[in-house]
Design a protein around this nucleic acid. Structure first.
Length: 313
DNA sequence: CGGTTTTGACCTGCGC
DNA sequence: GCGCAGGTCAAAACCG
């Protein structure tokens, strides 16, 4: 996986279009919201505790941001080392399995229309070009954790894929699905998705090649569409195993059903509705903070690095 | 109606 | 050459 692109996707998750920091205006706005809400309920002590909690979270955000900075530096160092290594050992670069003859030349006598001299003369050229591409093509395996009950082989990585085959392999009772990028044939990327034989809640996606077009969610982001969609398409959201991380990421998703009724009903301080309202206030304020989302990105990538040692970058 | 998914058939490489 | 396994094709079905 290209971490830089992934990171940009993650950092793009900031749901604060104005770019305002939580430290200034939005912070005061949130605090005033809390205080106002608290006056109505005559529970200033609880809002004080919430503000205190928010300060604690802000400190944690700062720490996570520093971790992200360090990790980015480490990544850049590793990447430059890898680039150096690749340039020194180009022949050792990974190459995908050899492609079928018929795919590159299309001169099967089954079709009968490519058997002329024109196609045969271009065979070498048409064969060489994809070969060069396949040499450069990168293969990477990515692990996605899904619900065990979820039987689909859909991996939400943000790209659009077209399924072109499914096969049951010998070493795994679960079928393997074959996907091509929807931008094919201009985009040569393929992926195979199969459930892990050991843990069927884990999807193993093997990517071949690199996309030669921008990430669809980046296009969405530039066109001003909802960034929650971006988050939903984030690979990390699927690859995270712990429910805690999932909950944290779900903070940016749309409000749960029924939450709109909270403000309409008369709130009580110890009622679940009020608590939910406070939680939503916290969530919305946090998701407006770029530092928070950056910290989340750092936490996610940290978890990925620790939990997915087999993943190739 | 166009794009996607399903699925059986087919192709290819590899080991024996 | 044969059989096996993985990968792909392509027609039909499905779907929005």
């Amino acid at each position: 996986m290209d971490y830089s692109s992934w990171r940009s996707t993650c950092l793009d998750l900031n749901v604060n279009p104005t770019g305002r920091s939580l430290d200034d205006a939005s912070n005061k706005e949130v605090e005033s919201t809390f205080l106002d809400f608290g006056r109505k309920l005559s529970v200033k002590h609880e809002t004080g505790a919430l503000v205190e909690e928010m300060d604690r979270i802000k400190a944690e955000n700062k720490k996570l941001t520093e971790m992200l900075t360090v990790m980015c530096e480490n990544y850049n160092a590793l990447r430059s080392q890898l680039t150096d290594y690749m340039s020194k050992n180009p022949e050792k670069e990974l190459s995908p399995p050899r492609k079928r003859k018929s795919e590159s030349s299309n001169n099967n006598d089954v079709t009968g229309i490519h058997g002329n001299s024109e196609s045969s003369s271009t065979d070498e050229e048409s064969f060489k070009k994809p070969r060069e591409e396949t040499i450069k093509a990168k293969i990477s395996s990515v692990y996605f954790r899904t619900e065990a009950s979820d039987t689909s082989l859909v991996v939400k990585d943000g790209y659009q894929w077209r399924k072109y085959g499914q096969k049951v392999t010998r070493d795994n009772p679960c079928p393997r699905a074959y996907f091509k990028c929807s931008f094919a044939p201009s985009c040569p990327v393929k992926k195979k998705v199969q459930r892990s034989a050991e843990d069927q809640s884990v999807l193993v996606a093997t990517y071949e090649g690199e996309h030669n077009h921008p990430h669809p969610t980046q296009l969405e982001a530039t066109s001003g569409s909802s960034r929650c969609v971006t988050l939903g398409a984030l690979p990390a959201s699927a690859s995270l195993g712990s429910s805690g991380s999932k909950v944290a990421l779900d903070l940016t998703k749309s409000k749960p059903s029924g939450s709109t009724d909270v403000k309409q009903s008369k709130p009580r301080i110890d009622s679940p509705e009020v608590r939910q309202f406070l939680v939503e206030q916290m969530a919305s304020s946090l998701t407006k903070d770029p530092n928070f989302t950056a910290a989340i990105a750092a936490a996610i990538s940290g978890r990925m690095l620790h939990q997915l040692p087999t993943e190739k970058w």
